[in-house]
Structure formats: C-alpha cells, structure tokens
Nucleic acid binder design. Structure first.
Lengths: 194, 194
DNA sequence: CCGTTTGCCTAAAAGAGTTAGGCAGATGCA
DNA sequence: TGCATCTGCCTAACTCTTTTAGGCAAACGG
C-alpha cells in the first residue's frame, strides 16, 4: 500500500487547519484520518492518543503566537509595545480561532514546561519594562494583563459582546488606553477609601 | 418497571454535580443515566439531546451565580461592591468548577436571551454606579471588568499562575485595588503620549 | 373502570477511540 | 546486489457515547 507520509507534525498541522475551519471540538482522529485518506488506526503509529494530537495543536499555536509576539515587540516600548502585544493575540485568535482555542488547553506540568509558555511569560514581562513597576507589583500586572487579554478575546469570540452599541474595536482601544494609564500610575497597596 | 421520577431539571442538577466532581467534559448522557440507574435511551423522554443537558447545566449555573451576585451586591457600593462582585464569581468557580465551565458554553441567541445573562449584565453595570462614568465609557468599563474577571478565573483555574511567587490571592486583591483606582480615574480618550 | 398518555425499556445503528496482529514497501548492512 | 529487519499502513475487533424506533406497563383522566 502506498505510504501516505504521515508524521506527528503533519497530523498536528492538519488538525490545526481543521480546528480553524470547524472548531477545535471537531478535531478528531477520525476527521484527520479522513483528511489524509487513511484509516484511523494508522494514526497510532505516530500519535499515542487523540489527546496527543490536541496537545500538539496547542503547542503549535503557542509557538506561532510567541513568534508573532516576538516580531511585534521588536523595537517597541511603552504603550506602543502594549498595543502591539495585545493586538497580536487578538488578531491571532481571529485568524485562527481553532488554534487559539487549542492554546487554552490545560497542559500537564512537563508539557507546559517544554512549551512556548515561558516565552510568553517573558515577553509579557518585557512589556512592563516601559513602565516603572517593581516586584511584586510587576507580577500582579503581568497576571492582570494576561487576564484582560485572554478574557476579552474569549468573551468577544464567544459572542459575549454581541451586537451592542459601541463596537468592540472601540472598546479594545479604550481598554488599552485604560491599561496604559493604569500601568503608568499603578496604585500603592491598600489605597485610601476615596 | 418502577419509574425513576426523572425530570429535565433533576437531570440537569445531577449533571451539574457530575461536572463539579469530574469535570464538565465528563458530563455525558451515559454517566447521568448511570447515576439514576436508568438506561440512556430513557433520558430522551426528558431531553432532546446531550446538548440540551449541557445547556441546562449552563443555565443553572448562570442562575445560581446571578442569585449570589444579587445577594452580594445588596447594600454595597463603590469598591466594596466591586470586590463583592468579583469574589462571587471567583468563589463560585472554586466551589463549582464544572458548573463554572458550563456557564462559559456558547449559547444560541434565543437561549441566551432567556438566560440569566441579562441579570449579569445589569448587575455589572450597577457596580459602576459608584463611579462616575458616562456612556460609552461605561460600556467599555463593563466589558473590561467582565474580561478581567473571566480571564483571571479561567487562567487561575487552568493552572496558568501555577506555583509562582506572589500567591494568587495577593494578585487578586491588588488587581481589585488597581481596577478601583482605574474606575475612579478613567482616562479620557486618546491620552497624551507621556 | 377503561382508554390514553407517558415513562422507562430493548434493540439497533452510527461515530469516535483504542488495541492487536498482519503484510508489504522501505531501509540497512554485508 | 541480496537479504533481513523495520516500519507504515492495513483489517478486525471491542468499548463507549449518542441517537432513533418501537414496545409494554404504570399512571392518570374521565
């Protein structure tokens, strides 16, 4: 029988395309096998399980996003960097909704350690170099930025802000303005009541 | 044969418990049927599909959260209200991770309209009464709050902030301080560069 | 008390994941 | 080049979940 030239990487790439086209929850060994015109069981020579396929898609997405962020951050600082950083994630999620969803997959500790996760953390922290934040506030701010961006994107993609008055682009810009203002003027612990 | 006394509501409630115990992705008609010691096909007298079960769990969770938020918001204003509001979501997610996950389910338009979603939106807006924000900034702020809380909780539950230095409770408090400060001093559109 | 409704049943099919074992094309070594 | 091994894809079989069709008996309404 002719060999199809399968590889874990090729399977992951096909899975990523399928995720973007049909949704991450439609990513299945059967669907991928169909795409290569191959029997499902054949995939087990390259993947240990359906879970591995999903994990590989997640890792692929994390790498791609990290690469884009790195490129976007080069030569930028302050609010310029903040905006570029945030836009990379939002744009990526719009271009590759399935991959973005995959990237939210909970990875086990060792897989996470080997992922591009560290690069993301590092680059998020790099954003803050343009602002004057000492530890532990820097960590708090890193976590807050991650939360806002991830939360916004997932709500926007999930239709949470559906068809209401100010469009979402407007909110996105104003939110970045607000975050920039906040980072430039990060409040001291336990601020006065008023 | 003895009747088990099944109801869509009872099934949803059992599904919610199962979700909290084993994860929302483990919620399956088979598992719920097992829990009632009933054959799977019998569930179809009460539910049109597995999807309906999931949707009902989501609606249940949204209701429960809305009730808790309403109770927490009574008699509070300003930062006090903001904190109570945020804590309700975070505590709910910790107590009922499966239900919280269910609440993130994408609902179709009519189901969403009939859900407690409107109450959530309304109460989020109520938080801002303690701050001086006119439209459209109010909407931007509502969306931002939703994003931060949802994003933070999902990252925290997904292990995104795992075992790093300042504990997550500390970040949560400081983030609320920061949001309070931000809302009290919401920047005008397009702020100066520095 | 009887007829209808309805709740749970069995049976069956389809789709997904997974494992075991086989065959032939590709690869490697003399 | 020739042969042995390896490896990639196959068939077969089982499990689990979802869903539909049709049956039987308990509950219910007049």
């Amino acid at each position: 029988m002719a060999r199809a030239g399968l590889t874990a990487e090729r399977l992951a790439r096909a899975g990523a395309e399928l995720a973007d086209e049909a949704g991450f929850d439609q990513v299945t060994l059967s669907a991928v096998a169909r795409r290569f015109d191959v029997k499902v069981a054949s995939l087990y020579s390259h993947l240990a399980s359906s879970q591995e396929l999903k994990t590989r898609i997640a890792l692929l997405a994390l790498e791609e996003m990290a690469d884009r962020v790195a490129a976007a951050l080069a030569g930028r600082a302050g609010k310029d960097a903040l905006t570029a950083f945030a836009d990379v994630y939002r744009d990526y999620a719009r271009e590759h909704p399935g991959r973005y969803a995959a990237a939210q997959l909970r990875l086990d500790a060792e897989t996470a350690a080997a992922s591009a996760g560290a690069r993301h953390a590092q680059m998020t922290r790099a954003i803050l170099r343009g602002y004057d934040l000492a530890e532990p506030d820097q960590t708090h701010a890193v976590r807050m930025l991650g939360s806002v961006f991830h939360g916004y994107i997932s709500l926007e993609m999930g239709g949470g802000f559906s068809h209401s008055a100010p469009d979402t682009q407007e909110t996105w810009s104003r939110m970045l303005d607000a975050l920039d203002a906040l980072l430039r003027n990060w409040p001291a612990a336990d601020p006065p009541a008023s």
